[in-house]
């Protein structure tokens, strides 16, 4: 821990599924009338972003940041999926308000079941940890990371993980102007 970092609560990263493990398949609601399964996305890299809750009140909001960086993820052919224990209507309102262009899955019933299977459920809070999983096209986790709940991890770790096994398209499309 560097001297520049504030005192942030310690999380429990040792429980999160690690690189090399097959990503457990799941099916969750993406909208009030649509379900999405991890297996629907096989053949391409998938970024699973577990986060504690919709409506984080800052511009540093992780999902809004990833929304802006989406073109960069797409250069790798990667699909981004957000997951929290919020319900579908909450997700729908949040996604509309923040103009999100990727699915938010509702890990709502049974609550946090998928987060549990990935080892990132926080029982006391009733939410998932802030955790990232980069999964390759064959369904194997290639990188995982758990952040302190109050700290947005940014996207550099995701892009470094994608670099290790996926080749980006040549044209730059960082997303600043999109």
């Amino acid at each position: 821990m560097s001297s520049l970092q504030p005192n942030l609560p310690v999380t429990e990263p040792e429980t999160a599924l690690a690189a090399g493990v097959r990503a457990p398949d799941f099916t969750l609601p993406a909208t009030p009338d649509q379900q999405l399964s991890l297996s629907d996305l096989s053949g391409q890299p998938v970024i699973l972003a577990f986060y504690p809750a919709d409506w984080s009140p800052v511009c540093g909001d992780q999902m809004a940041l990833y929304n802006q960086i989406l073109p960069e993820f797409h250069r790798y052919g990667a699909q981004l999926v957000g997951i929290s224990t919020d319900g579908v209507w909450c997700h729908a309102a949040f996604a509309q308000d923040r103009k999100l262009h990727f699915p938010l899955l509702a890990d709502f019933q049974p609550k946090g079941e998928v987060a549990r299977r990935y080892g990132v459920y926080r029982d006391h809070e009733g939410t998932s940890a802030r955790a990232l999983f980069v999964i390759d096209g064959t369904g194997v986790i290639r990188w995982s990371h758990v952040s302190p709940v109050g700290l947005n991890p940014g996207a550099d770790g995701i892009l470094d993980a994608l670099d290790a096994f996926a080749t980006p398209h040549a044209e730059p499309a960082s997303g600043a102007l999109s």
Partner: peptide, 18 residues
């Protein structure tokens, strides 16, 4: 502007201001 943004993403910018 794109280069600034892209370099920021790679550096771990996690919102504004970083």
């Amino acid at each position: 502007i794109e280069a600034d943004f892209s370099g920021g993403v790679r550096s771990g910018v996690n919102g504004t201001p970083s």
